[in-house]
Design a protein around this nucleic acid. Structure first.
Lengths: 157, 157
DNA sequence: TATTGTTATACTCTATAACTATA
DNA sequence: TATAGTTATAGAGTATAACAATA
């Protein structure tokens, strides 16, 4: 049995062992920025999800942000009471609520997102340009892959 | 107030919004590989931490892997019962246990790590070379930063 | 019968407090 | 008294089950 070829790249920590702690740090870094606007992480995720276009049901929203439908109810309650989102009963199906941002919600989303971008820019400035653009490109590419492709690549995807 | 300059890079999802789900997927992708060797994620993390050199106390190990000292006890119990690690009482201070891998533990670590690398290689093969090397470089750079530098970059670090 | 939204419950993971044995 | 390891307990976050309203 020969020693397999090892590229220099192989002498590194496992991907998840680097990615997960960095993700935790990013979350921790965003937290005070969001808290300054009275937003929890889930509340911000909801604002982001509704920013592009309204969503027809709470279940669809939960699905889109990979959350449990029971988990976002209190988040939606709070956002609604603060006038940041609207829950309009669908006249054609009174079971479901059309979810959309109010003007105040749109503004808060833009403000919070801007704060997060400033934070991210400061962090990314510590990376050499090639790493910075490679990271952003790789994250975009990986984000576009399905769960199956991410968790079992090369096995019939 | 003018519209601020926006580079094309700014038209993307938030870093954490991409990094955290990818980290979860990587963890999920590793899980069956580890389970095939009877290893939990924490058990694997312990093997990795002990692979380079023994650790003098359980508290120091917990610290090194960012775990609570109470959390790794059952993991250590299991690894010890399976003959993968040794807990040798320190003769000079019988409160503490020197932790080290047995030969079987070293072998299992190498085997599991190799399986994980194969998985990661298949996934990384889906990335263009520049993204792949940029990602690995960026993850290494970011991993080397302190918590303070990651969560509050540019504010006196 | 199935689905939307909701509430109540249980489960998992993690952290805190309290104990023992050594020092 | 302080520390290493352990056990027991409590807390946060999450998912599951059960319910009422509507289709």
């Amino acid at each position: 049995m020969n020693t397999p070829d090892r590229s220099p790249e192989d002498d590194r920590r496992d991907l998840a062992a680097m990615m997960v702690p960095i993700g935790r740090a990013l979350t921790a870094g965003e937290q005070p920025i969001l808290a300054a606007h009275g937003l929890s992480m889930w509340a911000y995720v909801v604002l982001v999800a509704l920013a592009d276009e309204p969503v027809r049901t709470q279940a669809a929203l939960a699905d889109a942000i990979r959350a449990d439908k029971t988990r976002i109810i209190q988040v939606l309650d709070d956002l609604q009471h603060r006038g940041l989102i609207e829950r309009s009963p669908d006249p054609s199906d009174r079971r479901s609520h059309l979810l959309s941002l109010t003007t105040a919600g749109q503004q808060l989303h833009r403000t919070a997102r801007s704060g997060i971008r400033t934070y991210e820019r400061r962090l990314l400035d510590r990376l050499p340009p090639a790493e910075r653009s490679g990271l952003l490109g790789a994250l975009a590419t990986l984000s576009s892959l399905s769960w199956q492709e991410l968790t079992a690549p090369g096995s019939g995807d």
